Amino acid sequence: MQRLLTSARQFLPAVQGAAGLAELQRAGGMLSVRSFSSEPDSHDDFKPQVKAAAAGSVEAVIEEDISSHDVFLYMKGVPQAPMCGFSNMACAILNLYGVDYGSRNVLADPEVREGVKKFTAWPTIPQIFIKGEFIGGSDILHEMHQKGELKKALEGVKQAEE
């Protein structure tokens, strides 16, 4: 325990100093600390790991998504559990037509979330693509549904398997 507390001193702010350590020791608590080293003789497992995205990789992901599905939805959450009302509405409308559609949860990937906004110059999520063409958000999808335009746009689109 003393070794742990001694090594913990370097990670505690100077303001807390000995008082913080004494309190930790009185409580019998354990301190778990993981540090990374950039020393040249350090093992690679202890060096900082940074995954750098290749230039254009977000655009490539978006291109792949919309080209591999007749209908694709960038949304918050997943179709079985939308995480916002607008995403829920988009899923409900697409489900009403019974079409097969792909989706990507932008909450799980902030790079794609911002990338799709730049790709379409549309500031909000969800975003719907039909046959590779950007349609808009859930409000546009809803308007198309009300006007009967969505049925025509979805002609020839594969139906979802039940």
Rank of each mutant, 00 (worst) to 15 (best):
M1Q: 04
T6W: 03
S7M: 09
R9M: 12
L12A: 13
A14Q: 06
L21N: 00
L24T: 05
L24D: 00
A27P: 00
A27V: 04
G29M: 15
R34S: 10
S35L: 04
S37W: 02
S37K: 03
S38E: 06
D44R: 11
D45P: 01
K47W: 07
Q49E: 10
Q49T: 11
V50H: 15
K51R: 11
A52H: 12
A53V: 07
A55I: 14
S57M: 08
V58K: 02
V58H: 03
E59L: 06
A60P: 00
V61Q: 12
E63Y: 07
E64H: 13
E64W: 02
S67V: 02
S67P: 01
L73W: 03
K76S: 07
Q80N: 11
M83E: 04
G85I: 09
F86M: 05
N88W: 00
C91N: 04
I93K: 09
N95G: 13
N95C: 10
D100Y: 05
R104L: 14
N105Y: 08
V106A: 10
D109F: 13
D109C: 12
P110S: 15
E111Q: 14
E111F: 15
K117V: 13
K117W: 09
A121I: 08
P123K: 08
F129A: 03
K131M: 10
I135H: 05
I135P: 01
G136M: 14
I140K: 09
E143Q: 15
L150A: 04
A153L: 14
A153W: 05
A153C: 05
L154H: 01
E155Y: 10
K158I: 12
Q159V: 13
E161L: 07
